[in-house]
Nucleic acid binder design. Structure first.
Lengths: 218, 218
DNA sequence: GTCAAGATTTTTGTATACAAAAATTTAAAC
DNA sequence: GTTTAAATTTTTGTATACAAAAATCTTGAC
């Protein structure tokens, strides 16, 4: 199953934070969680450190750990950074991308389209992730790729909220096509601008979404 | 002194890795280090996790932790990403920067120049870091700022090798001036290009440096 | 009744003990 | 002499025990 008990626990806690079961500012009790997971405090504490690393949790010495849900501002900021990082990937990839990778991009797009048609959100996200991962890889910079994957993964749960926005998916696919076209032309600037907009708009949409949900929640 | 025993140990191990006392691929023995630091295995293991997070060490389950010095390729990649991130900061800062911040940039530059004149590398690095930190801050994106500080800190030890390169510091200061000028003009594109080159050249210089050292070492 | 100081309880951080997995050594078979 | 398999030793991962710090509760003074 998992490599270590603490890894499994970290994953489970991560999911609980992502889906909102553990809300912002909530304190995570070591002994309580230890009992819940049927382990001692040690693996729980190790899991806490992993979560601290991902920024999902804040550890205050001698006080405990608290879940740290990024607020709207931080999320917008993260999407902005994601947009810029992907933009860099695209610019670098434009001159380095292989024909195989271009074929893979087309393939991922085709599968994405199919998923949209079938409203299969699960496979949509899988193929969308593959699309972006290919561009990261084709930047030719392994460290950049790593950083992109890390941030993409961290933003994943917030990306899902976009499914609710009517017409967004279809437009998103059109943007994918434009990005691939720019890469095929080897036009780095165009590809960079296209993907920056593509990602940045997700952050903005997300912003509008939560802004529109706010009044209803009160 | 420190918040926790494990934090202090993590810092000390970090320094040992940075200065090369602990070389690449070397295995870190828990009990040995515990004895050396006069603590139990627990804080050592916590320190390991922190180092894993910073990428300085690799943890292989059931096998142990191994020092992971970034190779030349990875370092070049990291400098490239740093250059792009700072470039983004400058572009965003150009339209958002405050007069106070511009004054601080001039001030940091003046101190940098003074440090160069006195060959005071300690204060040179402090003021250089301040210069870059101001630009990160003025991007107006807190998350971006955080990521920049993180990467800057990680590259710090490798930046120091540049002190050996004759004339580099003086040129570097001229580049700083050009960056500030572009920011004062509110020219985001120019500022972005200037700082990208400024940082990227560090990576290249570093590359040349290690390349020139390689044959001598054999 | 309110506030403060001390005592008690929690809770975190560290040490130690134990279990399971990997590495190493030893021994036996060919 | 080499190779392989079992036994021993190391070493990691987890549990438990203990100490110190923080939080909470209690009690007493005003």
């Amino acid at each position: 199953m998992e490599r270590k008990r603490s890894d499994s626990i970290a994953d489970q806690l991560e999911r609980l934070i992502f889906d909102g079961t553990l809300s912002d500012g909530e304190r995570l009790d070591e002994v309580q969680l230890a009992a819940k997971f049927g382990v001692s405090r040690t693996p729980i504490r190790e899991a806490f450190q992993k979560l601290t690393q991902s920024g999902l949790v804040e550890q205050i010495p001698r006080r405990g750990v608290f879940v740290r849900q990024p607020g709207p501002v931080e999320l917008i900021e993260m999407f902005e950074v994601m947009a810029e990082l992907e933009s860099v990937c695209a610019r670098l990839a434009a001159s380095r991308i292989s024909d195989d990778a271009l074929r893979d991009l087309h393939d991922a797009n085709a599968r994405c389209n199919a998923a949209v048609a079938e409203s299969d959100s699960e496979s949509y996200f899988r193929e969308n992730e593959r699309f972006h991962a290919i561009i990261y890889r084709q930047s030719g910079n392994g460290f950049l790729e790593q950083e992109c994957v890390r941030l993409h993964r961290r933003l994943q749960p917030y990306r899902k909220t976009q499914l609710r926005l009517r017409g967004r998916l279809k437009q998103s696919m059109a943007e994918h096509e434009a990005i691939v076209a720019a890469l095929e032309d080897g036009d780095g600037v165009l590809a960079a601008d296209a993907i920056r907009e593509h990602v940045a708009v997700q952050g903005e949409k997300f912003h509008h979404l939560i802004a529109s949900l706010k009044p209803a929640a009160e």
